[in-house]
Simulated assay, not measured.
Amino acid sequence: MISPDRFSNWLAWRFGSIALLPVAFVVALTAPTQSQVSSGTALEVIADIQEADARTGIVTARGNVQINYPARDLQATSDQAQYFSNERRLVLTGNVYILQEGNSIRGETIVYQIDRGLFVAQPKPNRQVESIYLIPEGTEAPKPTPPALPPVQP
């Protein structure tokens, strides 16, 4: 497998600073080995059009974007996605839907900070974002016990 640095250099040489890529492109979150790609630690992006800027390290996908990131049990769809490799940040815009471990979130723009596992969602103007969280049975917080009353003195 070609390293991300060699791939970026090849893109810059072949297409200039911005390259149109085929329909599917696997973004390397770290320099992946073949076993990492096959075991699912890579982030797969499928879209109508994809561009990679070798200078800035930004990959942009537009049109019917589908993302699969098995390492985080994450799947997403949107109109556009940008992966900022230097910050390890994924910005999804336009009809965003993310599903992770059974939990879901919808919004107009969602920023996913990969290293922090943090999602920040923004709605369309005058709208709201929607999240659905699964809460496992039996994990409710224990009910507080009422304080003991002092013994009654006769």
Rank of each mutant, 00 (worst) to 15 (best):
Q100M: 12
E51N: 05
V65G: 06
A54Q: 01
R62D: 07
A61Q: 04
T109S: 12
N68M: 04
T109D: 11
N64K: 02
D73Q: 07
A81L: 14
R62K: 10
S78D: 10
N95H: 12
I110H: 12
G63V: 02
Y112T: 08
Q113G: 14
I58E: 02
N103T: 06
R88S: 12
N103V: 11
G57M: 01
G102Q: 10
T93H: 08
R89H: 14
Q80F: 10
Y97I: 07
R72G: 02
S85P: 15
Q100T: 10
R72N: 06
V111E: 12
N68E: 07
Y83I: 11
I67P: 04
R88F: 03
F84Q: 13
A52T: 02
V96S: 12
T77D: 13
L99Q: 09
V96E: 13
Q100S: 10
I58W: 00
S78W: 02
D79Q: 10
P70Y: 00
I49L: 01
Y97V: 12
Y112K: 06
Q75H: 09
N64L: 04
I114R: 02
I49P: 01
Y112Q: 09
N64R: 05
L99S: 12
T77L: 15
I58N: 05
T60H: 00
S85N: 13
Q80W: 05
N95F: 09
P70N: 00
D73V: 02
D73C: 03
E108C: 11
Q82E: 15
T60K: 00
Q82N: 15
D53M: 00
N86T: 15
Q80P: 15
N64T: 04
L92F: 13
N95W: 03
D73P: 03
S104Y: 04
S78F: 02
N103F: 10
D115M: 08
